[in-house]
Simulated assay, not measured.
Amino acid sequence: MKPLLTTAALAVVAFTVSICSAQETKHSFLACGSHTYIMGEDGKPSWTYPANTRDGYVLEDGTLILTLTKSGKHKGGAVVSIAPDGSESLIWKGTQSEVNSAQPTKEGNFVITEAGNNPRLLEVTPAGKVLVEFPLACQQGNHHMQTRMARKLDDGTFLAPHLLDFAVYHYGADGKVLGKLDTTAAGDPDHKIHTWPFTAIRHGEGQTLVCCTHSNRVVDFDSEGKIVWTLTNDDLPGDWLQDPCGAQLLPNGNLVITSYAGGRKDRNAPKLFEVTRDKKVVWQFADGQGHGIHHFQIITTNGKKVAGPANK
């Protein structure tokens, strides 16, 4: 991807990268959070953006789609598009408390969630025309903890993780609830363990990988809703799952996970790491900073562009 050396790059981020040079796997990636940037495979940022972001995508032509955290400029959050030449355009201005995700669809539209008194999912065109709109069946008392990474599936239905409802909801195109995956920890009906679903990735034959933030676990449901795979810190070299918000399933079947709280207590803790299905760590990234990565997209691996739309 061509570096986007725009005026946004004036927001310089100082990185102390501690990626092990002996790693055979090297990735470049887009990082979203309090610091927004593209990190090269060489461990150096090629582009930065001066705003806090919730989610982001790099499209095939190099265009970036960023979900902006609410701010003085965008009091309800926003979704913007940044072209390869650096020009920025507004896709959606939030109308409630927050905009938490914006997924590009194969049709060229965007799936957006708004949190607030009337939480809702929308599918809009690049010009902001609403094509789909329906209310989300999540709790309304805590806006920030309503929903996160909603995604449109290949069949035209939608997945939306609802944090304080401890479930990933499956919606039809008309907003009807078709089903849900309960992320409640076994033997914990009172939800003392905060298995809040954050990112839900549909893959394989109806399987769904779910990052359960705050409980520091990632689970994989089969098509019948049974948990068939779990990753916790007991499976890793250390306490690397520290508020695992985002994840991306790579074409080779490996999973990359971000720990949003990684670095707060231990500055050398990985911000991102890649594991195989048998839980072997094959890549990790740490930058010595206290701020975390909220979500991300792996762009290249060992010099080659990651094929297909990002499954994240």
Rank of each mutant, 00 (worst) to 15 (best):
L4R: 08
L5H: 14
L5P: 08
A11L: 03
S18Y: 03
G33Y: 04
Y37E: 08
G43V: 06
T48C: 03
D55P: 08
G62C: 08
L64K: 10
L66R: 11
T67H: 02
K73R: 14
P84Y: 07
E98L: 13
S101R: 12
A102V: 05
E107G: 10
G108V: 05
V111H: 01
V111K: 01
T113E: 01
G116C: 08
P119T: 02
R120G: 03
L121P: 00
L122Q: 01
G128T: 06
V130M: 08
N142C: 11
M145K: 14
L153C: 03
T157I: 13
F158H: 02
F158C: 06
F158N: 05
L164Y: 15
D165T: 00
F166I: 10
A173W: 04
G179R: 15
T184C: 15
A186N: 14
G187T: 03
D188S: 11
K192P: 01
T195Q: 03
P197S: 12
G204E: 08
Q207V: 10
Q207Y: 09
T213A: 08
R217H: 10
F221R: 05
D222Y: 15
I227E: 07
T230F: 06
N233C: 04
G238T: 08
L241A: 03
L241K: 02
G246Y: 12
G246I: 06
A247F: 09
Q248I: 11
S259C: 04
K265E: 15
D266M: 02
R267F: 08
N268Q: 15
A269P: 08
K271S: 04
R277H: 11
K279Y: 04
W283M: 10
F285Y: 15
D287T: 00
G288S: 12
G292Y: 02
T301F: 04
T301K: 13
G303L: 14
K304D: 14
V306F: 13
G308T: 05
P309W: 09
K312M: 12
